[in-house]
Simulated assay, not measured.
Amino acid sequence: MSLTAPQWLEKIRALPLSSKVKIMNVCGGHERAITMAGLRSVLPAQIELIPGPGCPVCICPEEDIYTAIQLALKEKITLVTFGDMLRVPVNVSKKSARSLEQAKAMGADIRPIASPLEALQIAQQQPKQTIVFFAAGFETTIAPVAALIAQGIPNNLLILLSGRLTWPAVALLLETGVAFDALIAPGHVATVMGAEEWQFVVEKYHLPAAIAGFTPESLLAALYSILRQLIEQNYFLDNCYPQVVKPKGNPTAQRYLSTTMMIVDANWRGIGMIPVSGFSLKESQADARVQFPDYAQETRQRRGEMPPGCDCAQVLLGHIYPNQCRLYGNACTPRSPVGPCMVSDEGACRIWWAGGVR
Rank of each mutant, 00 (worst) to 15 (best):
P216I: 07
E346V: 04
Y295A: 11
A171F: 05
L237W: 11
Q324W: 07
P89G: 12
K11T: 08
A135Q: 10
L316V: 01
R269E: 13
K22L: 04
I149E: 05
A288Q: 12
K95G: 06
T78R: 14
A72M: 03
T35R: 07
Q129S: 09
A185T: 06
V88C: 00
C60I: 02
V145D: 09
K204Q: 15
F133A: 10
Y328P: 05
Q297V: 14
A171H: 12
H188A: 04
D64I: 01
D294S: 14
A222Q: 01
T191H: 02
M106F: 08
S96R: 14
L172F: 07
G52C: 00
L79N: 12
T81W: 02
L120K: 14
W353T: 02
Y66V: 13
N25W: 03
K76Q: 15
H30L: 11
A288W: 00
S218I: 03
Y328N: 11
S344K: 09
L43H: 08
L207Y: 03
Y66M: 13
A143Y: 01
A5W: 00
I122P: 01
A108W: 02
P308V: 09
R228L: 04
A135N: 06
I211R: 03
F236S: 15
F134N: 07
L327F: 11
K128Y: 06
D181T: 00
P44Y: 01
G83Q: 02
I131Y: 05
P186W: 06
I231D: 04
K94L: 14
P112H: 03
N267G: 08
V90F: 09
L73Q: 15
E62L: 04
Q125T: 13
P208Y: 01
G356I: 02
H30V: 10
A169C: 08
F82W: 15
I153V: 15
L207G: 09
P308Y: 01
G163R: 10
A288K: 09
V145L: 06
Q124I: 05
P116W: 00
S284Y: 04
S225Y: 02
K104H: 14
T260L: 09
I231T: 01
G29M: 06
A72T: 05
I69A: 13
L117S: 13
A331Y: 07
G83F: 00
V290E: 11
D265P: 04
E75T: 03
P89F: 04
A348S: 15
Q199K: 14
H188G: 03
A135Y: 09
P56A: 12
I65T: 15
C58V: 07
A179W: 02
T252K: 11
S18F: 07
F279G: 11
V21D: 07
P89W: 03
P308A: 14
I263E: 05
V245A: 10
I23Y: 06
D294I: 06
I274P: 07
K204P: 01
Q70L: 15
R32P: 00
L207M: 11
G29L: 08
P293S: 08
I12H: 02
R358I: 04
I34C: 10
G355A: 10
T67E: 15
L148S: 07
V264M: 04
F82Q: 12
M261I: 07
